[in-house]
Nucleic acid binder design. Structure first.
Lengths: 213, 213
DNA sequence: TTAAAAAGTGAGTAATTACTCACTTTTTAA
DNA sequence: TTAAAAAGTGAGTAATTACTCACTTTTTAA
């Protein structure tokens, strides 16, 4: 049996054309899952709000679980990494950049991306926490997708003598903790509409300089 | 109508004596809520595992929601703050401490506390994310309980000239992000059994010194 | 020792939920 | 234009769930 991720990517490829009602279902599901969680959202409620019959949901998605996967997996498997790849390419070049400039570009890009995809980001975080089988699939994938790139960046700037001598692994771990905590707390726990440039600058300062005088 | 928190504290005071079966119900609920979330746990399942009749749960707790509150509110309202107050008292004195020593003592104390109360901590994080009315009650309470104390500590060490000149508010915000991200990621997202002293040291180093050379 | 109070039981209930399927409507392609 | 395919419907179903309540058992207190 291949993984959830692989299955759903296959399925996504086969169904490239979506009817208007399918789109409406997905949009509504995203909204409700983000707001109250998957487990507290009924297919009946989704159908009513999307102005479709409940049977239509099952016609297209088979099960409620598959609807959830249809909502978050394209995001996780494709949008998230593609955009991340882009920003690494643009920011990690030979010219002129310092690590904090890299970090600034990276954080602002991720900030913008999550701001636009706030609802799906919320669904993802909630369900990663609430559904163990999702967690076991998605967390490793996210880690494997982000970690090597960020690590490469860290090593790049360490070689340029910009960063301290502590091991790259250790830096990476703490950086991921901070970045993950930053976006999750603002967008999910505190439900903020957006994150200001100023807040990003403060966080960069914290990460680069620490608290000690 | 008084807040959820106040209601439940009143209720907790009235029912000081718990039968063995009540204890069993609460323990089982904690385990299952931590593992699969409140919404994915049925009262029937709790009853079976606790080896009580389902009616017994309702005899003592009235509703499933009240059972959840009975599980987490004592923890949130009493254990968590009492222990935190203790560590602030012990560590914030006139003699001999640096900010990183304060931080070390604080983090280790919290680490030990959450290690011992891991299941309830998990329940709390999951339900704060999943149930909006809980989030609206508990997050402000947690913030109001921790923030002034931590802020006081930050200001204390700023006056002693140990910390940089950035505003205490900014420090506090980033510190809370890092600390919250640290414990939530390790205990809840990654489901780690414990956090080593070494990992705490690395995090302190990160927070105190930053990444810049 | 015994009656009253408290604790506990488990069958049953109303409500809810994910899902099915016979049928209808809309779209497609020849 | 028309038959076939695709999309959509909504009543119904089996399963599940939180909860009730008449009854039984255990504990308490006089």
């Amino acid at each position: 049996m291949s993984s959830l991720l692989d299955q759903m990517i296959e399925q996504a490829k086969q169904s490239t054309k979506q009817t208007l009602k399918q789109k409406k279902i997905v949009e509504t599901a995203i909204t409700l899952f983000a707001e109250k969680g998957y487990s507290n959202t009924s297919t009946s409620e989704i159908a009513k709000l999307a102005e479709v019959s409940e049977g239509t949901i099952f016609k297209h998605y088979g099960t409620k679980d598959n609807l959830l996967l249809s909502v978050i997996l394209p995001f996780i498997k494709e949008s998230l990494p593609a955009m991340a790849e882009e920003v690494f390419k643009e920011t990690l070049t030979e010219n002129t950049l310092t690590f904090d400039e890299f970090l600034r570009a990276f954080l602002k890009n991720r900030r913008d991306f999550f701001t636009e995809n706030k609802e799906i980001f919320k669904v993802m975080i909630k369900e990663v926490l609430y559904k163990e089988e999702l967690r076991n699939e998605i967390l490793p994938f996210l880690y494997e997708n982000i970690s090597p790139r960020l690590r490469h960046a860290v090593e790049f700037f360490k070689e340029r003598g910009e960063l301290t001598d502590i091991p790259a692994d250790t830096m990476l771990k703490n950086l991921l903790t901070m970045i993950g905590g930053f976006f999750t707390s603002r967008f999910v726990f505190l439900n903020k509409a957006s994150i200001s440039d100023e807040e990003i600058e403060e966080m960069i300062w914290f990460v680069m300089n620490g608290l000690k005088k």
